[in-house]
Nucleic acid binder design. Structure first.
Lengths: 215, 215
DNA sequence: ATAGGATTTAACCAAGTGGTTAAGCCGCAA
DNA sequence: TTGCGGCTTAACCACTTGGTTAAATCCTAT
């Protein structure tokens, strides 16, 4: 903690407070207290609240989507990549459960500055990559023909929602922090299987085996 | 508009503003303007901001989860109910896309007052109903053996996330309002199929038909 | 006509907010 | 030792916010 530069300490503190309370709910005073320094120094380094916020927002947005990008551009089959995506996303969320809700909440305010940061992520390209990958696999017959848009959103849904809805999940299943983590582990496996199952071309592989057994 | 009682007008206005900006971001002045009356009258009817907010919050929470309850307690097979759940939830979200994000954002603040309202929804019972239903169908062999917790959360995920992430979806697929709605229609069908597929007991039904064709 | 509740106006308050300023302290390098 | 940049302190400012008050007006049922 004390080893960090002041700039870094401020950013960490701001990150924590903004993720907890959002832009509107966060107080500069809280950030100063969290970073264990005073308001004056905050403004000395990062002039305004908006300024500091946009820095954090862009950072988190980037961190999150560049991870997706990396996995999609990496090696492996489509189904491998999807499993990896889910696993990586859920691990990221386990480490920082408030991340997604933070990003989506602020995006929902539809302030031009946030939307601009979003555009810089080139999600459009990211999805185009995914779609190309999917279509290739469909052509090869490795994967059933499915709607790329829906599939991609569903991958994000399944790996993101449990964290966005964490208080709800805790209440619904009467869980504590520990039970939640073990739930997430189950969820990870079940979700991979759900999508794998969905992508299986017809039921032929299973069918052939069963027929062999019958004969 | 003008036909509504003042109380009602205030509640509608408050609902709109709170859903847009959340508790921290909403201003009493904005609510007054939206309801086309003055701040004094706001406080005359609903003493404090917190007060008004909790009323709205409870209302929306209730409306949303009582709908789920009704479908689960209604007639039909499990798979029917799941399709109905998805369809109903997504229709509700189409009519009011900010609802889920609003509820989840405020729950995430973990203020005791919001959590208390959540507890009143008896989600625990709602889930118990669902689990009992599922287990009965599994016993009858109509449905594959799956984890109830995961399935339930996934149903919520798939029908909720596209709206929570609407700005992201719009950006990713380069859509406008109209394209989004048509996307949602596709999403609705694909999601129903995804879950139906997942719940199918092994691949036996399909298998039998295919074997009949082979013989 | 009039009494009583609904509504408006406008002034006001205290607390909190983001942000500024300036004087001074501290540690370190020249 | 001196000087300088990082840092603190504390006072301060303008503005916003939730909330109050009191007088004035409007509407309507009796």
């Amino acid at each position: 903690m004390e080893s960090m530069s002041t700039e870094q300490r401020i950013r960490e503190a701001a990150r924590k407070i903004f993720l907890e309370k959002g832009l509107a709910g966060a107080r500069m005073q809280d950030i100063a207290r969290e970073a264990d320094l005073n308001k004056s120094l905050l403004h000395y380094y990062y002039e305004t609240k908006e300024n500091l916020f946009l820095l954090i927002f862009e950072d988190e947005l980037d961190k999150f989507y560049s991870q997706l990008q990396a996995i999609l551009n990496g090696a492996g089959s489509l189904t491998d990549k999807i499993s990896k995506l889910i696993s990586a996303e859920m691990d990221a969320h386990l480490a920082c459960p408030k991340l997604s809700l933070f990003i989506l909440s602020e995006l929902n305010q539809e302030t031009e500055s946030c939307l601009a940061k979003l555009r810089k992520c080139r999600l459009h390209e990211l999805f185009r990559n995914f779609k190309a990958l999917l279509e290739k696999e469909v052509e090869l017959g490795n994967v059933r023909e499915v709607d790329a848009e829906t599939l991609f959103v569903n991958i994000l849904s399944l790996s993101t929602y449990p964290f966005i809805a964490k208080p709800l999940v805790l209440e619904m299943f009467d869980q504590n922090e520990q039970a939640f983590e073990s739930y997430i582990e189950r969820h990870k496996k079940a979700t991979s299987k759900l999508l794998e199952n969905y992508l299986q071309p017809s039921h032929e592989p299973g069918l052939k085996e069963d027929i062999n057994q019958l004969i």
